[in-house]
Design a binder for these strands. Structure first.
Lengths: 345, 345
DNA sequence: CTGAAAGCGCTTACAG
DNA sequence: CTGAAAGCGCTTACAG
């Protein structure tokens, strides 16, 4: 229709007031008489005025945008339901206020850091989400150096100086170990994530602690990059050992599903001969046969709260949004009593 | 460090030139003597100057940002590898030039439309990706009304007036039917996506055409929303019919995996008693047992080209980036000869 | 309650 | 090759 976008100057002229007053009226600021406000609003509406995010961003020094940079490898990323779910939670929090998520996917840690830097320095985003925090993570230093806003997803052990939101899973993991012990298992295998990721390390520690506390031997541990491919290799490695575990716990569901596939292929019956446990409670755990015992984490809620916290940070608030609900054990079909077999010493 | 961000005015002052000249030097425009340019650049670097995306966006009327709005339901979204993969391709194309992706996830079609509108009208993005195009899709009209830039992912049948990028899969689907025919199947079941989505409709039509051409009866068809849950229900429905299909083809891999789970649970051996075929070639198809025969689509490349095309559109170019590579049939373990059995009339 | 002006940090004609 | 100025579309003190 209009050749040119309508601006507040156009609205001001038509309404016979100044630009400043239009801005006040549009933003619901006090100091505009009800009739004038009414008139301005209706003119703006009639002219189809829409705020220009760029101009607003420049004059307020705020983009109303938040950044998330993912550096996992493509294959892991594509099968991991974490991010889509997390993002849907984030969106639920930010879209109401008209804020926006800037998402970036990168292929290396250097690029990840550069991307966070440029997003923040250029003012494209007002704050960032930091996931998959690593030991001595350079992103923490970067965000501090830029005195930018950030929310860390992970565990408070990260003395980041940033607000941290984490799903507490110690109780669920302990319940899992208790469940396996009750079924008679005492040789556990653990397929863990990369040890340089703090949450992977913590997950492993929680399980080892639970196992030890409950009188099990230290579990056998194989480290992976979270990919199904390495999950499969880890399964093979564990099962080919001298005293193979009778139950394997995986750090995510798709590694567990790959393990399940391998077991079937090797003629090992799950759960009669081997119990398998995932982590995350992704959709597919319900539709596999046997369905997977797993640990359920409310990732969408996590994302929702993280976004609320970040918005509140940026606005200088000190809102305590509270931690997301703790993880829960979901017992399904892939765990059962340990098989009777001649036992060694 | 610096209390205030350094701007080109600071650089200009320190270098003893005008702001305009700094801008020219920084943007590599002609009309600046080599020595001056050199000096300006080094001053800018020393002062740690970084461009302000907001200011640049306002004065150039360009955000260097592109929008993608997803409206699939959370459960489908979380298990569908399409979007993470697509996005990684998009990023590969745009991140080099310093452009950015604005991602939105919404819960209804109304919100989807509103979001596209506000992204475009506010100038937050310079163009958008349109996926999952539906019959009489209101987004097409919207984008046209706003005379905005867009790239459509789907099939040219959509006479959108926008450049369209699609993965041609007719040949692969025909090869799939040929493969099944060669194995002796003549009762096919199809688990399709929502018929109001043009690509779902087209997928179904391609398979029906291939089946008819190759002398099969019209396949039995069950429509779903692409979720594993409905994939499972569809499988049950097909298998409980009077003459159950001997092979079922699913519109995506996770429905196929849910179908596989159901078959196992019902005591039906795959592929001896039932052949199962997925679509998409997601990671998990390799790790299932039996591994899934599927159709491989290079989604990352699709995203890469779509982004290139969109950038070129916005810049007024007419680059022909070419269509992404066609889909390919991947024969794995889940398809085999039709079982011998007493056949009806 | 209202207006006129300056400013956010860039880019871009227009003069010289 | 370089400078001074206007402008992008808003917001926000500051006066009246």
């Amino acid at each position: 229709m209009a050749g040119r976008k309508t601006t507040i100057a156009d609205v001001a002229q038509r309404a016979g007031v100044s630009k400043g007053l239009v801005s006040f009226a549009l933003n619901g600021r006090p100091g505009v008489s009800p009739e004038t406000r009414e008139r301005i609003l209706s003119v703006a509406h009639d002219m189809g005025w829409q705020p220009d995010a760029r101009a607003r961003a420049l004059s307020t020094n705020r983009s109303l945008a938040y950044g998330l940079v993912l550096s996992r490898n493509p294959s892991v990323l594509s099968s991991d339901p974490f991010f889509p779910t997390f993002i849907s939670g984030v969106e639920r929090a930010i879209s109401g206020p008209g804020h926006v998520l800037v998402l970036s996917v990168v292929e290396s840690l250097e690029r990840e850091l550069e991307t966070y830097r440029s997003l923040l320095e250029s003012g494209r985003v007002d704050g960032v989400f930091l996931t998959d925090v690593r030991r001595d993570d350079p992103r923490l230093a970067l965000v501090q150096e830029l005195s930018a806003h950030a929310v860390v997803l992970g565990h408070p052990r990260v003395d980041a100086g940033f607000p941290t939101l984490s799903v507490s899973d110690e109780a669920a993991l302990d319940a899992l170990v208790a469940h396996l012990v009750a079924l008679g298992h005492h040789e556990l295998g653990l397929v863990v994530g990369p040890s340089h990721m703090l949450h992977a390390e913590r997950w492993r520690d929680s399980l080892v602690a639970a196992a030890t506390t409950r009188g099990l031997r230290t579990p056998r541990i194989v480290e992976t990059d979270f990919s199904a491919e390495m999950g499969l290799a880890a399964t093979r490695e564990l099962l080919e050992g001298r005293t193979p575990p009778t139950a394997i716990v995986y750090a995510n569901d798709h590694m567990a599903l790959a393990g399940l596939g391998h077991a079937r292929r090797a003629g090992i019956e799950v759960p009669r001969e081997l119990s398998i446990v995932g982590y995350g409670d992704s959709d597919m755990t319900r539709y596999a046969y046997p369905s997977l015992t797993t640990v359920s984490v409310d990732v969408a809620e996590w994302g929702y709260r993280a976004a609320q916290l970040l918005m509140s940070q940026v606005e200088g608030g000190t809102d305590d949004v509270g931690q997301p609900p703790p993880a829960r054990l979901e017992v399904r079909e892939s765990t059962a009593s340990v098989p009777e077999r001649p036992v060694g010493p």
